[in-house]
């Protein structure tokens, strides 16, 4: 990590795995309620926040104590989002992988929800972000400090396939990197690679 201690301490990590199309948001609400009933995804699940009325907004969120899940529409692109609010164990590499795994487990479950019309992960695109402007401002230093972790993550996820990375350079925005790989995979495969 090149001794960049601030980024090392980063806990508020998030990831969005893009979906091939937007599922019907009104159908996502009962799915998330059922997930709470069955504790289908990790975390202490609390409630649903419905922002489907907001254009290109957070969509429908599943609020948990440790982090929030969402079928998110920010940026005009649907995706399965998970971002962490509470501290995770392990080093930054482990924390990033844990966040991605949580999102992929949720994505895999969503793919299996018949009421969502067969929604699929694109599998070759994601956005990873640091939701903490203090420890990880959106600048080159954060990018450099984060690069080894990101490389390790993407090597695992995409099995070494070539990929393009694009950091949003707008300093007002949180640090975020869009990734597009040449070869993708479904959620279950990505998850298996990540946790292998």
């Amino acid at each position: 990590m090149g001794g960049h201690t601030d980024v090392d301490g980063l806990q508020r990590i998030g990831v969005k795995f893009y979906l091939s199309e937007t599922p019907p948001l009104d159908a996502v609400i009962p799915v998330f309620h059922r997930w709470i009933q069955t504790a289908a995804v990790e975390g202490m699940l609390i409630d649903i926040a419905d922002y489907s009325h907001v254009p290109d907004g957070p969509g429908v969120m599943l609020i948990a104590h440790e982090g929030n899940y969402a079928v998110d529409l920010n940026g005009g692109r649907p995706g399965v989002l998970y971002y962490r609010k509470q501290a995770l164990a392990g080093d930054l590499d482990q924390r990033v992988r844990a966040v991605c795994a949580a999102a992929l487990r949720a994505a895999a479950l969503l793919e299996g929800e018949a009421s969502l019309g067969g929604v699929k992960l694109r599998g070759d695109e994601l956005q990873i972000f640091a939701n903490d402007r203090l420890l990880a401002p959106n600048d080159g230093a954060t990018e450099a400090a984060f690069a080894p972790v990101l490389t390790g993550l993407l090597d695992r996820l995409y099995a070494g396939a070539p990929r393009q990375l694009c950091r949003d350079q707008d300093p007002r925005r949180r640090f975020n990197v869009d990734v597009k790989a040449e070869r993708g995979a479904d959620a279950a495969t990505l998850l298996q690679r990540l946790t292998a």
């Binding site: 926040a49 907004g57 920010n74």
Partner: peptide, 8 residues
Amino acid sequence: AEEYSDGI
């Protein structure tokens, strides 16, 4: 809103 809340 983004860092501490739900982005709204």
